[in-house]
Every structure is written in structure tokens, then in C-alpha cells.
Design a protein around this nucleic acid. Structure first.
Lengths: 235, 235
DNA sequence: GTGCTGCGTCGAACGGTGTTCGTTGTCGAA
DNA sequence: TTCGACAACGAACACCGTTCGACGCAGCAC
């Protein structure tokens, strides 16, 4: 039978779905798109499935569960980090700071990835590469094996916690004015505390609420950690 | 009509509930009991209501939402901390470490509270008292106002992240054997990585997986932070 | 060519979650 | 005695992660 000029009432192949088959990569791609645009909470198995025009059950043939999907997203973020290499004993402190800045940059670029990463040891390939890199820098700094190992636990913990805090406060996208309003309210809360019981909090209200928007606070944190490691290394 | 000797078909007062009225304190008490026994995930508005023999809607007359309940639980934990006082410029580093140890102890005593605290600035009365105390110690250490303010953000961030990591890994109660098995698997994973691409990770597999059970890792962290703050203070 | 078998797909359902709505019952003030 | 305010709460809404079981199709053995 040749093709009729009219639309066939019941098409020979009833809308044979021309969609290419599902796979891990397509799932992670879709989840990543959604997370970048709408944050961690917006990524559910159902919504990812919907984005791929299928049902939630289909995902489980390629991904063990939500936690594994989270880990895959974290590793995607880790892939985008380009960390200082090779380690240079002369500049290890600056390299360490650069590495931490780069980790934060990567997490900020994918809002929600910090939420996915927190409290889970990331064991993906890219994450392991960053671990190896950090170990190199720390050993170049003269830290003992044990100190380097614990530091490599401490450092991502701090960076992830900072990134997480940022994306929770701005869970829904906050405009700069929203942030300013929030900080202002916080400051008036601090200054309105009873000065006899909270003298320092009242006095330092300004300092306590500064640097919430920019990178100064994070720079302070990485300065503390780097200086602390340096002090322990030279002992 | 006087009382009939028989059970009235429809009792005059249908089992007038003799339960005392709900209030914030009873709700927080119940939630705390459940969280200590079964962890953060076990505390849902429904389960708390069930524990109090009522429906979930009843709670909302006393608590704005789950997040507020979480904050109340965090503040309960903060109440149990007794932090070093008064600040002593001669011993501020030791006082700071003691304060961090005490914060971790309090969070460990209430598994799940770290999960409730993470990513939210705790503003309850007890939490503010601990902030005030930390500020005192840090100012005694000679830190600038701004440095003290940022440090008071960094310190709970670290302690909370450590406590959270601990309670996530052992979400369901893990026996010591379970922990050991998990650590063993992690170590074999590290050692089985390709040695050409991950030489340090393979070599330091032992160090990377040590101290997961005890306090050594945490002690290392607070040593780094204290040393870093001391270095910045003396500049 | 035929039949079978294994696997990816996926609609439906299960048991949970936080939260809201609208009714009910009680109690204190007028 | 009436009224109004408000705590209590059953039911429902819109979600969530995950599992079950039916279905259809590809590749292989015969």
C-alpha cells in the first residue's frame, strides 16, 4: 500500500516513539539542567522523568536511586573544576587557596550541588582526581601523611558547607535587594538584643552581618585554614 | 435527667479528653525524644502529632512550620552546652578548643540536631548565648572585630558539618562492626585505584581512612582552626 | 522462519511527607 | 445567655522515592 494523501485514521505505526533510548547520561543531563535553573529541591525523580517524557519508574533501570543520581551530579560538578597542577612547594599555600576558590566557583555554578554533596563522601572519578590534587599540594607543603589525609577531609567539608549555606539562604532566587533586606533585618535583630546580656553581639552587629554577599568571608575562612595548616606543618 | 445506671447509649460527655492542652513545650519535648531515639528523619509533623495523640494540623497552632520546629530543637541542644566562661586572654586557645568540643558533644548527644542546624543561622536564645561566648573568647585572643565576627560564623559551620557527617554515615544505627566494615571497604577502594593516576591516594589509603571512629580527626580540625586564628590574630 | 527469553519501558500503586481548609467544640467576656 | 475567639483536628491536596507487574521488542537458538 502506497502512502495515502490523507492522514490515515489509524497510522500504520501508532506514533512509533522516535525518542532515542534512555541512558545514564541523558538522565544526568536533564537533572543537571533542572538543578542549575531551579535548585536542588526542584530535582525529583518524577520531574526528571517528566522532563524526559517518561514515567519515574523508567529511571531506575539506569540509576540505583536518588542518592546515586545526586552523586553523579556532584561528580559532574567536580569535572568542571580545573585545579592547580603540578604542586609547587614554593607556592603551595597560594595553590591551596586557588583550589578552594575553584571548588567554590564550581559549586556556585551549579546551585544545589552543594546540597547533594554534603554529608556524603564523593567517590566519583572527578572527585577522586581533586582529592589526589589536594593531597599533592598538601604534601608539597610538608604536611605529614596523616595531616594531609585529615586536611583533605576538612577542606571540602568547609567549602561545601559554605556553598550549601549560600544556596539555602537563597533557596528561591533572591534579588540583591532581598539579600540586603534580610541582612538589614538580621542587623537590627542583633542590635536590639539586651545589651547587658549580649554586649559583644550588639557591639559587633555590623561586623557580624558584613561580607554575606561577597567573597570576603570565604577568603577569611581559607586564610584561616591555610595559616593553620602551615603552622602545623612547620612544627 | 439523672444518671442512668446503664451505660448511656450516647455518653453525656463522649470521652471528654482529659489530656492537657497542647503547647510549644510539649511538642518540642516529643520531637526531641523521637529525634534522640531515632534520628532526624524519624521526626515528621505527623509522627510528632501521633506521639501526642492528635493530628498533624493541631501542631500548626503552636509552631509555624517544620523549619521552626527544627530551630527549636537546635536551641534545645544549645541550652545543654556549658561553654567556658569568662574568657581568659591567657588561655583563649584552649578555651576555644573546649568550646568546640562542647558544641560537638551536645550535637552528638542529640543525633539529628546537626541535620536540623545545618544551613540555617540559629537565632534562638541559647544559640545567641553561645555566639556571645565565642565572641568573648575570640576578642580575648586579640582578633579584630571583623575577624571575630567571621570566625564566629566559621566555627559552628565546621562543628555542625562534622556532626552532620557523623550522623549521616550512621543514619541507621551502625554497630562498631558495621563502621569497621565500611572503613575497610573504603580502604580497599582507595588501594585498588590505578596507581599511575592516583599515586598519593593509593599510598595514603591508610591515613585517609583512619580516625573515622574516634576524635582524632576532629581534634585535628580544631587544631587547624585555632592555629589559623592565632596566626591571623598576631599579624 | 519460528519460538523463546531477557530486558528496557512505564502506568499504577504504596506508603510516606509538609501544609491548608473548614468544621467542631469549648470557654471566657459581655 | 448569647456571642465571639480560638485551639483542636479530620480530611484533603500536592507532592515525594520507590516497587510491582504487564507489555513489547530485540537478539539468539533451533
Amino acid at each position: 500500500m502506497s502512502q495515502s494523501p490523507w492522514q490515515p485514521i489509524s497510522p500504520a505505526k501508532p506514533a512509533r516513539p522516535p525518542k532515542e533510548p534512555l541512558n545514564r547520561e541523558r538522565i544526568v543531563d536533564a537533572a543537571l539542567r533542572m538543578m542549575v535553573k531551579q535548585g536542588y529541591e526542584a530535582v525529583s525523580m518524577r520531574k526528571v522523568a517528566q522532563e524526559l517524557q517518561t514515567g519515574p519508574a523508567s529511571l531506575y533501570a539506569h540509576v540505583a536511586n536518588k542518592k546515586e543520581l545526586d552523586q553523579l551530579l556532584v561528580d559532574r560538578a567536580a569535572e568542571t573544576m580545573n585545579l592547580p597542577w603540578p604542586p609547587d612547594p614554593e607556592r603551595w599555600q597560594e595553590q591551596l587557596k586557588d583550589a578552594m576558590r575553584e571548588m567554590l566557583r564550581a559549586m556556585r555554578a551549579m546551585p544545589g550541588v552543594a546540597r547533594a554533596a554534603i554529608g556524603e563522601v564523593p567517590l566519583g572519578e572527578a572527585a577522586m582526581r581533586s582529592t589526589e590534587c589536594l593531597l599533592g599540594i598538601l604534601k608539597a607543603g610538608g604536611l605529614s601523611d596523616q595531616a594531609a589525609a585529615w586536611a583533605v577531609d576538612l577542606i571540602p567539608l568547609y567549602v561545601t558547607a559554605v556553598a550549601f549555606e549560600e544556596t539555602v539562604q537563597g533557596a528561591a532566587e533572591w534579588s540583591p535587594e532581598d539579600v540586603e533586606r534580610f541582612v538589614g533585618e538580621l542587623r537590627t535583630f542583633f542590635t536590639s538584643l539586651p545589651a547587658d546580656r549580649f554586649p559583644l553581639t550588639v557591639a559587633l552587629a555590623g561586623a557580624l552581618t558584613s561580607g554575606a554577599d561577597g567573597d570576603e568571608r570565604f577568603e577569611f575562612g581559607i586564610a584561616v585554614i591555610t595559616a593553620g595548616l602551615a603552622a602545623l606543618a612547620s612544627k
